[in-house]
Design a protein around this nucleic acid. Structure first.
Lengths: 168, 168
DNA sequence: TATATTTTTCAGAACTTATTGAAAGTTCCA
DNA sequence: TGGAACTTTCAATAAGTTCTGAAAAATATA
C-alpha cells in the first residue's frame, strides 16, 4: 500500500469510529487528517483533501477547537489561518474523556441526585427497584468519574510504565 | 417528585446518554425501563410505557439481547414472552465495554496493522508523521484493550475495594 | 478609507437513521 | 388440524442530522 491510499484509509477509519461514538464523522475525519499532517493546514487544504464545503470545514474546525483537540496557528507571511492537532495521542484521549465527562456525565450525575429524593413508600417494589438502580448507577458514575480524574492528573509515562504492571 | 415522573426522567436521561454514545435512543430507553422494573415485562408493557410501535419494540429488544443486556424469560402460565435486564450495573458496564471493544476496537486494530506496512521512503516527512501516528494509536489501542480485558476478568468487589484505593 | 481576502453564518437541500404498521411467520392448544 | 395469540419482518415514510453555498461579517492591505 502506498502512502496516499493509507492516509485515506486512516481518515475513513477514524471517521467511522467517530460516528459510532456519537462524534460527527466529518469532524473525526478533519481531526484524522490533521493528526497525520506534519505541518499546520489551511481550511483550503482540508476542504480539498476531504472534498467538503467551506462551511462544513469551518464548522467542524470550530468544534474541534471547542473540544481542545485542534489549535489555530499563524504562519508568518500568511494571511489565512492554519490549523494543527495535538499529536500526543495520550493527551488526545484524555482530552476527549474530560470533555465527554463534562458534557454527558455531569448532567446525568445532577439528575440522579434529584431522582434519589423521589417521594413515596420505599418498601413498594417498583419504588425499591428504582431507588436501588439509581443508587447503583450513582456509585458507578462516581467511581468512573474518580478514575477519569485520576487518569487526567496522571503522567502518561507513569501510567504506561507502572500502572499497567500492577494490573497485569 | 413522585415515582412515575422520576421513572420517566430516568428513562429519558438514559436515552439521551445512549444517543450521545452512538446507541439508538429507543434501545437505551427500553433498557432503562427494564432496569427499573422489578418484574419481567412483556412487549406490550414496553410499547405502552414508551409509546412505541410493536416493530420498534421487537427490534430494539432483539438488539438488547444481542448485546447481552436483556434476556427473554418465560413466566409460567403465560403464553407471551417476557423480558428482563441484568440488574448488576457493573456487569452491565463491562458487557457494554466488551461488546464495543469487539465491534469497534477490533476492526480498527486490524486496519492499523495493515497501515503499519505502508511502502515508501520512511524519512519523507509525511510518511514519518503517518508512521508515528499509526504506531502511537496502536500502542494506545493495545493498552486500552488490555485494561478492558483485565477489568472484565476482575471481580467487581475487588475493583471497588482495592483498585481505587491504589489510585487515590 | 477603499478594496481584497478570508472567515463565519445559516436556510434549505441532501443524506442518514429510526419508526411505523400491516403482512407474513410461528407457536400453542382445543 | 384450525385458528387464536403472539412475534418477526420489512417497505414506506418520518424524523433527525449534516452539508452546501452564497451572502454577510470580519480582517488585512494599500
Amino acid at each position: 500500500m502506498k502512502l496516499p491510499e493509507a492516509r485515506d484509509k486512516f481518515i475513513n477509519a477514524w471517521g467511522r469510529l467517530g460516528s459510532s461514538w456519537g462524534i460527527n464523522r466529518t469532524m473525526a475525519q478533519v481531526h484524522a487528517f490533521l493528526l497525520i499532517s506534519p505541518e499546520p493546514m489551511s481550511a483550503e487544504n482540508i476542504m480539498k483533501e476531504l472534498k467538503i464545503s467551506r462551511g462544513n470545514a469551518n464548522m467542524n474546525l470550530r468544534e474541534l477547537i471547542n473540544w481542545g483537540l485542534v489549535e489555530k496557528e499563524h504562519v508568518k507571511g500568511e494571511r489565512r489561518e492554519f490549523f494543527s492537532a495535538e499529536k500526543d495521542i495520550w493527551k488526545v484521549a484524555m482530552q476527549i474523556a474530560k470533555e465527554r465527562k463534562k458534557r454527558e456525565l455531569e448532567p446525568v450525575k445532577k439528575l440522579l441526585d434529584e431522582l434519589e429524593k423521589v417521594e413515596g413508600d420505599k418498601r413498594e417494589k417498583n419504588h425499591k427497584a428504582f431507588n436501588e438502580m439509581v443508587a447503583a448507577i450513582q456509585e458507578l458514575v462516581s467511581k468512573t468519574d474518580q478514575s477519569i480524574e485520576t487518569f487526567i492528573k496522571m503522567d502518561a509515562n507513569w501510567f504506561f510504565g507502572t500502572f499497567l504492571k500492577i494490573l497485569r
